[in-house]
Design a protein around this nucleic acid. Sequence first.
DNA 1: GTGGTCTAGACCACC
DNA 2: GTGGTCTAGACCACC
Lengths: 121, 121, 121, 121
Amino acid sequence: MDIWAGFQLNRKEPVYLQLVRRVKQLLASGQLPDGSSLPSRRETAAQLEINPNTVQKAYKQLEEEGLLTTDSGGSIVSCPEKSLQRLREELVREMGMEFIRSAKELRLSFQEVVGLLSELW
Amino acid sequence: MDIWAGFQLNRKEPVYLQLVRRVKQLLASGQLPDGSSLPSRRETAAQLEINPNTVQKAYKQLEEEGLLTTDSGGSIVSCPEKSLQRLREELVREMGMEFIRSAKELRLSFQEVVGLLSELW
Amino acid sequence: MDIWAGFQLNRKEPVYLQLVRRVKQLLASGQLPDGSSLPSRRETAAQLEINPNTVQKAYKQLEEEGLLTTDSGGSIVSCPEKSLQRLREELVREMGMEFIRSAKELRLSFQEVVGLLSELW
Amino acid sequence: MDIWAGFQLNRKEPVYLQLVRRVKQLLASGQLPDGSSLPSRRETAAQLEINPNTVQKAYKQLEEEGLLTTDSGGSIVSCPEKSLQRLREELVREMGMEFIRSAKELRLSFQEVVGLLSELW
DNA sequence: GTGGTCTAGACCACC
DNA sequence: GTGGTCTAGACCACC
């Protein structure tokens, strides 16, 4: 699987954090199964036209969160069910905060938002 | 006000629609007051490094939705209270659908989502 | 206090790890009190004639181990009694393994080593 | 064998003593067999980027300890079993004192140290 | 001044 | 080929 297909970098947020989140989202949504291998740092850097060091930083962070194991042969995602649950909560929390921020900017009440969501769900 | 400051184009969606939404968001959130003037098509095109025709298409659409009036002197946003309300609903609807799409991707239930939002609100 | 006074880099081990260990040793031996501030990354880099990024990496690791807090004004070591205990164990473990490695290279028995230590203690 | 491969000078201790200890360690650990020849003073000086006189001082000391014989053809280590034993004791004594110094700096008791060593041995 | 991020590119060990 | 480390230096935000 090409994990970077359709991935779009923005300039507001550190690039390495965007990479980290991307991988987390793929893991959390089941699109990147436990045990899959990630493309090499050089490969990713070339594809996204960024510096290999930036990819290295992202992969390192994933390792430190226990979602990636890496040896001289490459990097393998490791996402047991327990991590999955934690990941989902983390991501949904971020999404929720972003959604709330936007809703408040549009001056919506909590009740209006919930009404809308129940209608659209 | 520089309405394009910090604005970031992506490649997934037609550029003119991104411009339209940007202006709507600024209107709906009160950051671009009724009666403000937009930068010229040429100016906008230069700043965002896109084709002036694309800007033209966006401004045209805003005119058709009654949010912009253009004469030889430039373009002025017009956003009476009534339009504002319609705008907010339109934007929040989009946001809501996007949020729901992501939440479902993470396999969350409606109840979980509402619980989270009430906690974070 | 000049925490790098008399500090000597070698080339066998990653430089950033040597910096990390140095700070840990100063903390564990009480020479760098809880709440002390470290020299800035630039300052340290200049003094040791290494790249600021290498210092950054070392300080970052110390932060991740909870031994350093950093804000735009600089970095402060934070080493509560509990961390101190953990640190000491970590460092002594490293020292012990190194000592054992050398002793075995010299073909000494455990008994001989203990005898020597009891004599020298 | 390149006896200086991987050898790292520090600035705390006289260089010639570091050279002497290096050779002793290689002898004591059997990596430099009795009867091997050492590289010439000039060669060693060039490789380590130090002054030939410093190498001369080190070789001289080794000769005085009966570990090296030099003639016009070069320098040959001589390390009978008896010298070996003395060497090991000397080196392990140094190591032990260094280890004890560090352990005391970390405020460890003799008992703790022995316990750790027995665990790690 | 401070820390944080990023690029460009080198060199290392491991395979 | 792979990952890991390091340098040199830029640019950013914050103060």
